[in-house]
């Protein structure tokens, strides 16, 4: 098994994980696009979703694929509650962009430490028996079946979101808000409802993404959320900020680049990923595929 087969393996796993990364980052991008706030607690919601799947499996032997569906209404409801607590007041504040960033950071700290109190600090992982067992051989290396199920679930979710954005009234309203809020309001878009739905949807997607998190990253612990947020942000910005479907490209690029980095220079994979994020933000703040977002 030379470097070449290893490269095939890295590419294949990179694509599978990339699809998952796209799904994991999707909620962050939708919330940013519609509400113009960076949900810094996004990764913490993913972490919570992973723990819900873990607890339901350990305590009640619930297959995590059922949990995956169940998480949608639960986190959607949570999103509605958080929306009413935070968003209207922050929108009226003196500097919504930075104040919301700080407030969501507070939410992130809160979720993280509440999870620490509830679950402890040590990492846990979801056994393969919680979803699907087995592995398939690829270029001489084993790829767990669950990774493929995760990628398939991600594709289904991405397709549904495409449907929502293109063919439903609420989705079209969301897209109108992403492009130009004033114009959308002038054309009679129900801003409150469209924003609320998109915000809650962002939460629901984050929670659902949590089910596959332990399989892709190997483990989960309460303070992992902050890292997941920055990773999701990297994926979003490799695509375009405020354009949810560009996250697919962002996810695939990040997945493949990250896999190749971790195969050839594992000790610097994280550091290089964040340096990459830094460079992209400076050079193209709106995302690699996005328009100009710069100010003086």
């Amino acid at each position: 098994m030379g470097y070449a087969t290893l490269l095939y393996y890295a590419l294949a796993v990179g694509v599978l994980e990339g699809l998952y990364f796209a799904f994991m980052a999707l909620g962050l991008n939708i919330v940013f696009g519609v509400v113009r706030m960076i949900n810094v607690a996004h990764g913490d919601l993913v972490m919570l979703g992973a723990y819900v799947a873990f607890m339901l499996f350990v305590d009640f032997r619930v297959n995590a694929l059922y949990t995956f569906v169940l998480l949608f209404p639960v986190f959607f409801g949570l999103g509605i509650a958080i929306y009413y607590i935070l968003v209207p007041r922050l929108e009226k504040s003196s500097d919504p962009e930075i104040n919301s960033f700080i407030a969501f950071f507070g939410l992130s700290l809160f979720i993280e430490s509440a999870a620490t109190i509830a679950f402890g600090v040590s990492p846990t992982s979801l056994p393969a028996s919680a979803t699907v067992r087995g592995a398939r051989s690829l270029a001489g290396y084993g790829v767990p079946n669950v990774l493929m199920v995760g990628a398939a679930a991600s594709v289904v979710i991405l397709a549904l979101i495409f449907y929502y954005l293109e063919f439903t009234g609420l989705g079209r309203a969301a897209r109108a808000l992403m492009q130009n809020k004033e114009q959308a309001m002038a054309l009679g878009v129900n801003v409150r409802l469209a924003t609320l739905f998109a915000f809650a949807l962002g939460f629901a997607l984050a929670g659902m993404a949590g089910v596959f998190e332990p399989y892709v990253f190997g483990y989960i612990y309460p303070s992992y959320g902050g890292f997941l947020t920055v990773l999701a942000f990297t994926v979003v910005i490799i695509g375009a900020l405020g354009n949810p479907l560009s996250s697919i490209i962002g996810g695939l690029v990040f997945g493949v680049v990250y896999q190749i980095l971790s195969v050839y220079i594992p000790s610097l994979a994280y550091a290089i990923s964040f340096l990459l994020l830094l460079v992209i933000i400076v050079v193209k703040p709106g995302g690699v595929l996005g328009g100009a977002q710069r100010e003086v």
Partner: peptide, 23 residues
């Protein structure tokens, strides 16, 4: 980084912190 708008600046400096941490 000062070419960036407020929350981009915030997250860019956060990325710098994490990059240095992992380095």
């Amino acid at each position: 980084l000062f070419r960036l708008r407020s929350h981009y600046f915030a997250i860019a400096t956060l990325a710098a912190l994490m990059a240095v941490y992992y380095l």
